[in-house]
Every structure is written in C-alpha cells, then in structure tokens.
Design a protein around this nucleic acid. Structure first.
Lengths: 246, 246
DNA sequence: TCACATTTGTCCGTATGTATG
DNA sequence: TCATACATACGGACAAATGTG
C-alpha cells in the first residue's frame, strides 16, 4: 500500500495523513478530520499531528483555517514558487555593491531560459488551434497594453494575462500554473533586487502585438520568432539592470 | 525587509527563519541555530519553532537530523515532485476497476506534454554545442540500453541518465532538476498504477539511438524529430496501459 | 563497552484566540 | 451575551538518536 514507499526522512504521520486523503478520496476544499480525531486514529499526540499538518500545509496539501478547521488543499505550485524564489535569493549572496552579479543572476537567467523554451514550443502547438473568440480576447489584452504603454506605465498583470489566455486552448491545466510559477519567481526576485519596472512599456506592448499578428495570420514560424524576440527583450533588460545602472 | 511580502498564512516564524538564512548568508549544508537558540532569539516557544522548522523541512529549506542538529537544506525540487505526485494521485480517484481512466490519466498526459515541449526545445539548443566527449558519454549510455534491450530488460535509470547527460552542456542547473522532477512524478504515478515496465525496451533503445545519430550528424531538425518520436512512443505506451490490458 | 552531553522527537496539561450559532 | 468547537501557543517533562571521551 505504500504509494510512495519510505520517505527519506519525512515523518510517518505525514505519509499517513496523505494516504488518508487518498483513501477517503477527499477533494480540495473538503474538511479534514480535526486534530483531535487525527491524534486518536493515528494514536499520536496533538503536537505530532500539528507538526505533520504544518508540513503538509507548506506543501499546500492541506489548508488550515484558524478557529475553523483543516481542509484539503489545492496542491498548487505555490510551494514550488516559494522554494524556487528562496533558492534564487539564497544562492547569489547579493554580490558586491558595484557589479551586482552573483549566482542569483545566473539562476534568474536559468529560469528565463526554461520559460523561453517552454513558451516557444507551446506557441507552436497553440498557433493552429486558436479560435476567433480567443484571438479577440488576446486583442483586448494587447489593446490595454498599448494604452498603458502610451501612458508610459508598466503592465506586469496584463503580461501575465496575455500568456495565460494564450495557452488556455491547450486544455493543459499544468501549463498555466507552471508559467505563472516561473513568472512569479522572476518578478519577486527582480522586485527584491529593486529593479525598476519595465522602462519601455511601449516596446513590450509592441512585442505582444507582433505575436498576436503572427497568430492571426496562422503563421507558426513567425509566431515563434515573435515570442523569441519577446524573450530577447526581457533578457536584455535583465542584463542591463544587472550590470549596474547609473 | 520583507523580501517576499505577507505570506498568505505562513507563520511569522517561518519567514523569520528564512530571513535568518538569507541575512547570515548560510549555504546548504551549514548548521542552523539549534531549536533552543531559535526560541531565544525569536522569543517563542520550542513547539512553535519546531512547527516552523517542520514546514521548512517540507520545502527542503532546512534539513533536520535527529540527535545531530538542523542544517540548511538544498532547496531542491523534491517538494515539487512530492506535491505534483500527490496531486496526480489525488485527482483521478483511481477510476473504476475496468476502465482505469480518470483525471489522473489526463494529469499524467499534461506532465508528459510539458516534458515533451521542454525537451524538443532544449535539444535544439544543445545539438550544436555537444562536444566529442559528451557524444561519447551518450554513446556509452545508448550501448548499455541496447544491451539491456536485447536481454528484454527495461532500463529506467539509463533513460534518466541519457536525458541528464544530454543537457549538461547547457550549463543550466535548473533544467536537469526540472526534467528529473517530471520523470520522477511520471514513474512514481505509473508505478502506483501497477503499470508494467517498458514492454518493448529494444524499441526504446532504438529511439535513443536515433536521437544520438542525429546529434552526431549535427542535424538539429532530425534530432528534434527523433526526440518527438521518442515521446510519441511513451504516449502510446501510456495510453495502451490505461485502456485496460489483457 | 560505557557513560555523558547535546540535540531533536514526542507527549501532557493548560490557557488563549477565533469563528459559528 | 453566551456556549461550543476548533486551532494557536506556551511551558515542562521525558524518550530517542548521535557524537565524544
């Protein structure tokens, strides 16, 4: 019955609680047994139960609401985001004041490369299957980008929205979550570095317009190139920020 | 100071311990303060400290060794693997005995698609930069695959090794970890489903041989096609298993 | 082999905060 | 306002694992 056998160090209780969710076929949002019930069925103390639940909460496998109860979690990718963010921040060591380059800059580049490979491959698969409704939605997002760009305002949320809508027709629930995860890590770390927001939002809006134009024309190759250009722009910006501004 | 702003529910202590690692620039493997020290510096009880540490342990941000001490963790992707595995197992609900199809089969397909997109894109970037030494290493792996295939034995570990060596020259530390994560999730779930091992290892070995041949010829397009064929084979196998055997 | 100190693991009892009715 | 049910937090105690002399 051990779905995954011996956890390397993870507590027995932790596995038992996971197994309990699987056995009872509990769905996200459904209530878990209370701590008291768990300590009786598992025959351990309240403290041990709590420690296990805390660990599972960190993995978003359960959700604990104070004064209310414990519920089955979404098992989302937020632990992945937190972990990757922390790792990126912890690696670099901030670098010296001048050349701010450190291991973190490299780590950020690695994340960007994975995102780039993913999106360049994904846009090929989605380029043919986009229907008029989805194209219209993307058009709407790009219009708002352009308006924001003319005003000189950055639009990180619109950027997020564009890429999410773009891949919706894939029917792959993992893809948007993964991309959102990378996006979150990148922007959180960039924010912690004090990077300025997109200095040239009009250019970024233009990149998205190019992608949309290629998609409308059903030109797979051009769409991929446009996506690549988009990332080239992000990389250039990241490098510029890293190599010391003024 | 809040590198990442208000954690959605995460305890204050948890963030403080993470911040402590960042502030003191502690590297993976270095010792953390003992629980006693932490409860003094953070002015909380030992139970609270332990719960926070348990959560951080689940994220592989710290590593706890009984009777020895607490150490800074690798912040690896194992939490990601565990979470994704659990999520996949928890979604499907096992399905009915006969048609074993469920949401889990779809989730498995989604994971496979992401891996496929990633590897097809990555092999393009690596096809030109592989040197003779790396090609020789791959040759060695493929030879062992072929030997194992002739004996009719499956070779999951060699498969893993091939894909890992393939992307080493990228210099991107995140890539092999991500791929290993997907690989682990896929095989753990497949194992829990009781799927048989690769029923035709000789064919799988042949797929890898094709990839290597294309790489030797520096034929980027052909390498990508060979990689795509490889995944086509995996998908076919997965579908076959799902739709009831015997 | 034998203590011994250090550190984490587990448990108990109690008090407090929070949401529901 | 009150009662109930639940999670949160604390302090103290002892058990178990590990390393050292």
């Amino acid at each position: 019955m051990p779905a995954a056998r011996e956890r390397r160090v993870g507590s027995r209780i932790q596995r038992q609680v996971m197994q309990l969710i699987l056995d009872r076929r509990l769905r996200p949002g459904e209530p878990m047994p209370t701590e008291t019930e768990l300590m009786e069925t598992l025959e351990v103390s309240r403290n041990s139960v709590r420690e296990a639940l805390k660990a599972l909460q960190a993995l978003d496998i359960v959700e604990i609401r104070h004064g209310h109860g414990t519920y089955v979690g979404e098992a989302s990718l937020t632990p992945f985001v937190d972990g990757l963010t922390f790792r990126t921040l912890a690696r670099g060591g901030w670098g010296s004041p001048r050349s701010a380059s450190g291991g973190d800059t490299q780590a950020l580049g690695e994340i960007l490369q994975v995102r780039e490979v993913l999106e360049e491959g994904l846009i090929r698969r989605v380029a043919e299957s986009l229907d008029d409704h989805e194209l219209a939605e993307l058009e709407d997002v790009v219009r708002r980008m352009e308006a924001s760009g003319r005003a000189g305002d950055a639009f990180p949320e619109l950027d997020r929205e564009f890429h999410e809508k773009l891949y919706r027709s894939l029917g792959n629930a993992l893809v948007p979550q993964l991309l959102a995860a990378f996006w979150n890590v990148f922007h959180t770390v960039a924010g912690a570095r004090g990077w300025t927001k997109d200095p040239a939002p009009a250019v970024t809006a233009r990149r998205h317009r190019d992608i949309l134009t290629a998609l409308r024309a059903r030109d797979v190759e051009q769409a991929q190139r446009a996506m690549a250009d988009h990332f080239r722009g992000i990389e250039a910006r990241a490098w510029q920020e890293t190599l010391g501004v003024k």
